[in-house]
Amino acid sequence: MKAVTGVNKLTKKTSSINITPWLFIGPHLLIFLIFFLVPIGFGIYISFTEWDLISQPDFVGLANYKEILFNHDSIFYEQFQTGLKNTFLFVLFAVPFCILVPLFLATALHAKPKFWKIFQSLFYMPSLFAISAVVIIWKLMFDVTYGPINHLFQLNTLWLRNQPYAWVSLVIVTVWWTIGGNMVIYQAALNGIPKDYYEAADIDGASGMQKFLKITLPSMKSQILYTVVLTTISQFNVYGQPLMLTGGGPTNSTRVLLMNIQQNAFGSGQSIAGIASAMAIILGVCIMAVASLQFFFLRDKK
């Protein structure tokens, strides 16, 4: 009982110094601090050092950043350039489809066509698989000799070893794997739109397309902003698909930055964690920049 009265006193105080919000965000902040901020702080520190994961890190100031960004002769400069370029390309190719396909499917399902529940489950199912299973399925699908894709379309395409097919394959696999997440968000959003909006539009004689553009999309604006930003961030972190499907090939054209970061930090040779960390930090800054732009253009301008 004592505790309760104590808390009660606390809330009475809130009106003056307003600690209520901090009670709401406190639990998350605590976990965030311990399990995210401290490790990332360490990661930033490591980016200013030379470190092999085992001995004491040696502080080298900005040397890693200089090498990655400006030393044209260094392999790490090259790794960063191609890796970042490929990552941006992938984001550019994949994100639009990762938004539009689920949006289209969610809208279609919202009209409740026949067997919609079955379709909905089918569309959602791929996102439940771990990436290694996804890759095994699609490696079979894209196989030159035995793959059903080439068989079905009477093709002889080397999907994973030629451009632009390698990008096409990676985008297909990524969209297939990630449809579920965004689709569910859109479905929840669609269900939140009050029916009377549509009824009013019906009275005005609006067409289906008009209703979609004038009512549906604006009502889902905040969720679309969320999915665009989140999908972009997660596609910047693409790793498993190129690693296991194309191996970064042909000729490094699908080698994304995270593959280089991972290999430098935890590869089969001695670890080069300082460089890896610096690359990760710069990638993080790039993601932040892109996400801020998206916020700027998509935010609710009231």
């Binding site: 030379e50 092999d52 001995s55 040696d58 260094s74 392999i75 790490f76 040779g269 001695q270 080069i272 300082g274 460089i275």
Partner: peptide
């Protein structure tokens, strides 16, 4: 280049 980073 990678070896150059090895302190050992």
């Amino acid at each position: 280049d990678k070896i150059a980073k090895d302190k050992t």
